[in-house]
């Protein structure tokens, strides 16, 4: 239980720090300007470092996953997605993985039941929950563009309109606000419910869930319940997009909680499992086409081996071979 409660306590403490510091010590410049810029710098440099670190590792061989028929003879149909033969098809596989989580769709579960019963079945809940979680985060991220642009970029407008199409409350209720909280709760409960998952789950599995949940709760509070002055907030965020260091105006502390948790997430991101966001594009089992039969792949760090051909061998020993009566190719 400690590995669940510790991350929870840390997130609660992280909520408290900016609240107390802004409310009672007036540290709005530190938490409104310095911390976000430092976090952004660490995020960008950290992500770039991790990506370049992965990119410079050679991947000499194709790692084929046996999920479909490989391309062989023309008259044998092959699976373009599950055993791609060209880089283009491989990138379609990567993009489908990124947007639809096809690997998770193949998720199975095996359970030992009461008595001599064993079930092995397809399990789609993780796929569904993960999809809901990640897509909501994407839409929420896109929606936040309204804080960083004078006019909302064209393609985000329909996303934003679709998100509030239920037209339930005022300010308009965003579907993704509810979906992301529900999905985060599901992903958390999923880890607790199953004994096997409980054992393999680590504090670093719970911490990002709690952190993202807390960010969402702070955002929802600000929008629907406690309210924060959006004009002053937009002035500050527009300052971010213009790289200005103007001190923020009078903003409710809950905004600083939201901003600080996002900063923590940004700093935590490059050094944690959250890097799967960048790593998925570089995963060799997804982005390498399976063309081992068409193309010879040579390991670049093989030592240069001095080969000795049969012709050279015969040149050296031709006379001795003739004397011994062995057949030679060249007289």
């Amino acid at each position: 239980m400690k590995k669940v409660l510790m991350p929870l306590a840390i997130v609660l403490l992280l909520c408290l720090i900016p609240y107390v510091a802004v409310r009672y010590a007036g540290q709005s410049y530190l938490f409104g300007v310095i911390v976000p810029y430092a976090a952004a710098a660490l995020f960008v440099s950290g992500v770039l470092f991790r990506l370049f670190d992965w990119l410079r590792r050679p991947v000499p061989f194709r790692i084929t996953t046996t999920a479909g028929q490989e391309k062989t003879l023309d008259w044998i149909p092959y699976s373009r997605l599950d055993s791609p033969a060209t880089p283009m098809q491989a990138w379609v596989r990567v993009l489908l993985e990124v947007f639809l989580f096809r690997s998770l769709f193949r998720n199975n579960k095996a359970e030992l039941r009461e008595g001599p019963g064993f079930t092995f079945a397809s399990s789609k809940w993780l796929w569904l929950g993960g999809l809901a979680f990640h897509w909501s985060l994407l839409v929420i991220g896109l929606r936040h563009a309204r804080f960083f642009f004078v006019e909302l970029p064209g393609f985000i407008v329909p996303v934003e309109v679709a998100d509030r199409f239920l037209d339930l409350t005022l300010p308009a209720f965003y579907l993704t606000d509810a979906v992301v909280l529900a999905a985060a709760t599901f992903l958390f409960v999923r880890r607790l419910r199953d004994a096997k998952l409980r054992i393999i789950s680590l504090p670093t599995d719970y911490f990002p869930l709690f952190l993202i949940g807390a960010i969402a709760v702070a955002g929802v509070l600000m929008r629907y319940v406690t309210k924060a002055d959006i004009m002053t907030i937009k002035a500050l965020t527009m300052g971010f997009s213009e790289m200005s260091f103007e001190p923020p105006g009078d903003i409710a502390p809950v905004f600083y909680v939201h901003l600080f948790l996002v900063s923590v997430l940004a700093v935590y991101f490059p050094f944690s499992k959250l890097m799967h966001m960048g790593a998925i594009f570089l995963s060799p089992t997804r982005n390498l086409c399976n063309n081992s039969r068409q193309k010879r792949h040579v390991n670049p760090w093989n030592r240069a081996v001095k080969f000795r051909t049969y012709a050279e061998y015969e040149d050296d020993y031709r006379e001795k071979m003739k004397k011994a009566g062995l057949p030679v190719e060249k007289e």
């Binding site: 309204r146 642009f149 909302l152």
Partner: peptide, 11 residues
């Protein structure tokens, strides 16, 4: 003034 600035479209 505010609605345009904050990108809010009231109905």
């Amino acid at each position: 003034m505010c609605h345009e600035y904050a990108n809010v479209k009231p109905t």
